[in-house]
């Protein structure tokens, strides 16, 4: 039994945001972190490992520095780490990325008991598309926005959060789940893991390793396989700070402010 976790290294949005002249993010000059929701996905997999002893495999597509992130995930308790990297994959949008990650999952091999975990969305693109697209391309049932997962044999009961409520869904393995931060509290790296993670090999899947997968064609990956293109990226102007109204007369104060602005 395996839990496969797809992770992404993203710019640290608490630091400075830099752009290249063409308007895309200048990732090289920004601090990087593991995408927060992906840590919830890893925690879901590690919880499953605690319960069942399953193998936890983390997969990330990205440039070489993503290897550092993968080692940190090993230090948190993952068993295998795979870096999907190659010039051919550069410039991929969500469609091409999910195509490549699905091929990588195929290469790892998906058994009848296995589960793929993804974070809800990455904080750099906020699309929430890659997880669901991987599921579609692998013909897997999927549950997105998981806030609770209960496992009983091959059946998972998942609480799927919606904006105005939630759904309780049952799904059988193999399946894909995208995780939100309400699902769990990601664990820290542990000292033993930190000192062992450099003894482990980071496996690499390059174009050669994945090219025989039917999902991988020259026009389904990289810039060529990407139907979307970034037109421009910019930092939106900050909204003015809100005012907090307290006390019994808060409603009256609010009414007078709104009246002052001729809104009511």
């Amino acid at each position: 039994m395996k839990a496969i976790v797809c992770v992404k290294q993203v710019p640290d949005t608490s630091g400075k945001v830099a752009y290249k002249p063409d308007g895309t993010l200048d990732r090289a000059s920004m601090d990087v972190v593991t995408n927060p929701d992906d840590l919830n996905a890893l925690e879901a997999a590690l919880t499953l490992k605690d319960e069942t002893g399953c193998e936890v495999v983390v997969i990330s597509m990205g440039p070489d520095p993503a290897e550092g992130m993968l080692r940190e995930l090993l230090a948190r308790g993952a068993d295998r780490a795979i870096l999907v990297s190659g010039r051919e994959f550069g410039g991929s949008d969500t469609f091409a990325t999910s195509q490549i990650l699905a091929a990588a999952v195929n290469r790892v091999g998906l058994g009848p008991d296995d589960i793929v975990f993804c974070g809800r969305q990455a904080i750099d693109g906020d699309t929430a598309q890659v997880g669901p697209q991987i599921a579609e391309k692998l013909h897997l049932p999927q549950v997105s926005y998981a806030a609770e997962i209960k496992k009983d044999g091959n059946k998972l009961t998942v609480k799927r959060m919606l904006e105005d409520g939630f759904m309780m869904l049952s799904v059988e393995t193999p399946c894909l789940i995208t995780c939100i931060k309400e699902l769990n509290q990601p664990r820290y790296m542990n000292i033993k893991g930190i000192f062992e993670c450099y003894d482990k090999r980071i496996e690499r899947f390059d174009y050669e390793a994945l090219k025989d997968d039917p999902l991988i064609e020259t026009d389904t990956i990289g810039l060529k396989g990407s139907p979307t293109n970034v037109f421009k990226a910019f930092t939106p102007p900050l909204k003015g700070a809100g005012a907090m109204l307290n006390g019994d007369d808060a409603a009256a104060k609010l009414a007078s402010i709104l009246a002052e602005k001729h809104l009511i």
Partner: peptide, 10 residues
Amino acid sequence: TKQQQMAQKM
């Protein structure tokens, strides 16, 4: 070392 940096971060 890389391990020390990682431990410090943790």
